[in-house]
Design a protein around this nucleic acid. Structure first.
Lengths: 333, 333
DNA sequence: CTGTTAGCGCGTTCAC
DNA sequence: GTGAACGCGCTAACAG
């Protein structure tokens, strides 16, 4: 691959002139400029970002770490990040799998590569994060979760409000026996949803949910959770699922158990994934602006990298209830 | 961030000794080694990959370019690539959006960053790819599509065989009125599926499909396609969908049109996404090992980077028919 | 066993 | 308006 030196030699100018032509960083006689540009084109010269990085001590690269099986669920979010990064002239270094040793390895690599910033998308908390980030860590944005002891901005969804609005909807329809099928215990989202549900229920005078089961945030998890809920001595008339995949798996479980949705059971999900409007029945759910969240994350990170920003920013995006066919007033026989 | 020079000074040794301690590239007296290691730890020194890259002219970075809305569908694939890359000590630079100008911009950036290799995941072909790749381009692997004039390895699915096996299944069930609901015209997958379908149909003495509609590879696309198919004067008794999302959208269209699946209409999809086993009815489909494909792609690329490989390798992964509930013998009234 | 030195490709002073 | 020279952090060839 051609180097700047070669271009300079071929154009009969000094290496610094070439540099200035490329970066437009000082006046160059027009004919010289033309000639240099021509040579660059002819030799198919492309400046080396690594050499630049060495000098400037900046890579225009951000790391994005995703927990293992979060890729499907976070595809939109990653696209949003990439989108904003592209606009801002940054590249993204993608790492998947955040379990213990692998997280450490990823962080190490990213630090070696001298990323300018880091986005961490996870669900549980990593207590040894500060240590793994080493001395003067790059700016970090935590996506939709929080970690102790890390001086990072947080951008996420207001899961508490989402659960609140969903439960409130169920309450308004007349449901009192409302169960929860949400993600693994200890998870940030699950905790927030629990709080939101408790609040909505409490304000309506309902002491507690008609059932509460934690499980994988997947179709399988939802299927299992709903089976359990439907087998309860006093089965719920409505379920709030912490996630659309859980809800969709739950819909299947309802079919298999012979209970009709929404006639015998109302279901409201969370996320509004592409499939939800096409489910049978179409899923009522709290839409989450994943892509937008990705963009906000990236913009926050870039501002932080830029230097000026009030410390410990914390932004929560709101969801929106989408009414479809999976919820209805309870049917009393 | 601490530098090697600082470590050397602090340890009272030369800079090269530090280097050799780190890389184990020549014998160092044990006590010196210990001391240097201790200092490194104390100063939280992390070697700079960018300086290394400058010297070694290699970055251990590969680019992965994904067409705009392919992220959801390719999440597994990307995970597979990342997995293999991690094992091999490579990082991946993710780019999304391969439309015209943006593709060019991405390629430019990747070349500037001096990636060691490139994975291109797309569906349509880019004729100006060779030009965009510049002089001595890095090794390229084309994922599940082909491009003209590019000296690249190709790893993909045998869409032709997938369509063939799916149609054959329908044929064996007794269907003769088989329609096709597949991706956009001109797309690699669509073309191959058409060929496979034609072959299977032809061998069974069926002159042509009972209908054929191209559309977006999404639920919406599938919904629209099936509506069209079901409104035909002579509606099909079975449909092969080029994609599970299409099939799932199609299932919804069938419900809305009041046609029962599989009683009045058999549907077989392609891909076996996480939701397919939970659809109503559970979707019969041709499973595609996306994750494995990602791994094969990465391994192929790394072998190529390594240097030794017979040129123009081309590997097609086979799908597997998963029998579930959406297909049955045709019902004659 | 260890230290000195010369680049890798680039941006940037400083001197013309 | 232009060029020479230094250094970013690191590896490797060469001397001791």
């Amino acid at each position: 691959m051609a180097t700047m030196k070669q271009v300079a030699a071929r154009a009969g100018v000094s290496i610094s002139t070439v540099s200035h032509v490329i970066n437009g960083t000082r006046a160059v006689r027009e004919d010289v400029r033309k000639r240099v540009l021509a040579i660059i084109d002819e030799m198919r010269y492309v400046p080396s970002a690594v050499a630049r990085s060495l000098r400037s001590d900046t890579t225009r690269l951000i790391g994005v770490i995703l927990a293992e099986h979060a890729m499907h669920a976070r595809a939109e979010l990653v696209c949003g990040i990439e989108d904003a990064a592209f606009e801002a002239g940054y590249g993204i270094l993608l790492c998947t799998g955040a379990d213990g040793a692998r997280l450490a390895a990823h962080l190490r690599t990213l630090i070696e590569k001298r990323i300018d910033g880091l986005v961490l998308v996870a669900d549980s908390m990593h207590d040894d994060l500060p240590m793994l980030l080493g001395a003067d860590p790059p700016p970090v944005v935590l996506a939709d979760f929080q970690a102790a002891g890390v001086d990072a901005d947080i951008v996420g969804f207001d899961h508490e409000a989402a659960a609140d609005i969903a439960i409130r909807h169920l309450l308004e329809l007349g449901h009192r026996e409302i169960a929860l099928a949400i993600g693994p215990e200890g998870t940030h989202a699950a905790r927030a949803q629990l709080a939101g549900a408790a609040r909505a229920l409490g304000e309506a005078g309902v002491p507690r949910p008609a059932g509460q089961v934690h499980g994988e945030s997947s179709c399988e998890g939802g299927y299992a959770a709903f089976r359990q809920l439907l087998a309860l001595p006093a089965p719920p008339t409505a379920v709030f699922a912490g996630n659309d995949l859980i809800a969709l798996g739950g819909l299947r479980a309802a079919v298999d158990a012979g209970v009709g949705v929404p006639r015998q059971l109302s279901v409201v999900g969370c996320g509004d994934i592409a499939l939800s409007p096409y489910a049978v029945p179409r899923l009522t759910t709290v839409a989450q602006p994943q892509r937008r969240m990705g963009q906000v994350i990236a913009q926050t990170l870039f501002s932080r990298i830029g230097g000026a920003l009030p410390p410990a920013l914390r932004e929560l995006l709101q969801g929106e209830l989408i009414l479809r066919e999976s919820t209805a007033a309870p049917f009393f026989c």
